[in-house]
Design a protein around this nucleic acid. Structure first.
Length: 301
RNA sequence: GGCCACGUGGCGGAGUGGUGACGCAGCGGUCUGCAAAACCGCGUACCCCGGUUCAAUUCCGGGCGUGGCCU
């Protein structure tokens, strides 16, 4: 790697081929690959999350892949801490993944907010259920005016705002003004977004899910049965559909269609984030993966 | 060949003589601790040709198409 660049970041929608690019780059530069994906951290879900294979992991050092159990509630906060630790060990880090928020933690930092006790989280959740979304939102807005612009129906954010308020006595907006330190602060970065044309991406998504099925995705899903639906890992695309097939509630063809559709919709959301948050990154068409490496290298010198 | 029914946006599916149900897909967008999540927004579609009417997707006739029944 050029002595001018401290770290390479490669973002891209799911199935854009970024893992392969990162691997080729790591081999070429002798770098370490650091995961920046919220789902590839889960140990028991390698196939469904399209995590690098054991063979691929042997070709270059990989960090933060499969280091968390599916029953653990992982989050950006933990990622930020894990990434900082990984950075300390990685000589030539190449951060790769598709989770926009995690990249934000790396490049912009997220506020350091005191942890919310599980008991409060649960109490707040029950409170919202008991009083209804509208009343809950009204109370939240009264106690934390900055939360008024949240939609009452936005379960996640209204819950989070109330939790923080109850746990810390200060509104979320207060904490958010105290900007956190970016994990990669002060480093020279080379940042890339892999963005294949939509039709190409859709075709890859389809092909990849079919390949997952052939590699044992169904068995993997079976092994994850009984996972609490509230856990982040329960949101792994395709998991619910395959488990429904296994339970006899859905046929495989339907499940496959639904899983592919959900994946396309996810890719679309990722691209929206990238377009608006990573406009200044180097955008690579990534239609033909073979010429991406030279393109990336040209930006590292 | 005869009889009957139907023909609405990419798909499914309501409905009406004059302000385009709705669902899905698709597209656009929001975004600081569940983010592969959560949430928001976006559609001049009524098979063709005549006729009736101030007005036809809606009524009438014909054509074409699809499905079913009959011989």
């Amino acid at each position: 790697m050029s002595n001018a660049i401290d770290a390479v970041l490669i973002a891209g929608p799911t199935a854009s081929g970024k893992s392969a690019v990162a691997l080729a780059l790591a081999e070429r530069l002798g770098g370490m690959i650091v995961n920046t994906d919220s789902m590839q951290v889960y140990r028991e879900a390698r196939i469904l999350t399209a995590r690098p294979s054991i063979e691929d992991e042997a070709r270059a050092p990989h960090m933060l892949y499969g280091h968390v159990g599916v029953r653990e509630p992982y989050s950006v906060g933990r990622y930020q801490a894990d990434a900082a630790k990984a950075l300390a060990k990685a000589k030539r880090p190449i951060f790769v993944g598709g989770t926009g928020l995690y990249f934000t933690a790396l490049t912009e930092g997220i506020a350091e907010i005191p942890p919310v006790p599980a008991s409060i989280r649960e109490a707040v959740r029950q409170k919202r259920e008991a009083m209804g979304a509208e009343a809950f939102h009204a109370e939240l807005a009264a106690r934390d005016p900055a939360s008024a612009n949240l939609r009452a129906g936005d379960t996640q954010r209204t819950l989070r705002a109330m939790e923080v308020l109850e746990a810390t006595g200060e509104p979320l907006s207060y904490w958010q003004t105290k900007a956190g330190k970016p994990v990669l602060e002060g480093l020279k970065l080379a940042r890339f977004v892999l963005a294949p044309p939509r039709p190409v991406l859709h075709a890859r998504i389809e092909g990849r899910f079919d390949a997952m099925l052939k590699s044992g995705a169904m068995e993997e899903a079976a092994g994850l049965s009984g996972l609490d639906p509230a856990l982040p890992a329960a949101k792994i695309l395709g998991l619910r559909e395959l488990q429904a097939v296994r339970a006899g509630a859905m046929d495989l063809a339907t499940a496959t269609t639904l899983a592919k559709t959900a994946t396309r919709q996810y890719a679309k959301r990722q691209l929206t984030w990238f377009r608006h948050r990573m406009g200044g990154w180097h955008w690579l068409e990534a239609q033909d993966l073979s010429n991406i490496i030279p393109e990336i290298l040209s930006h590292l010198s």
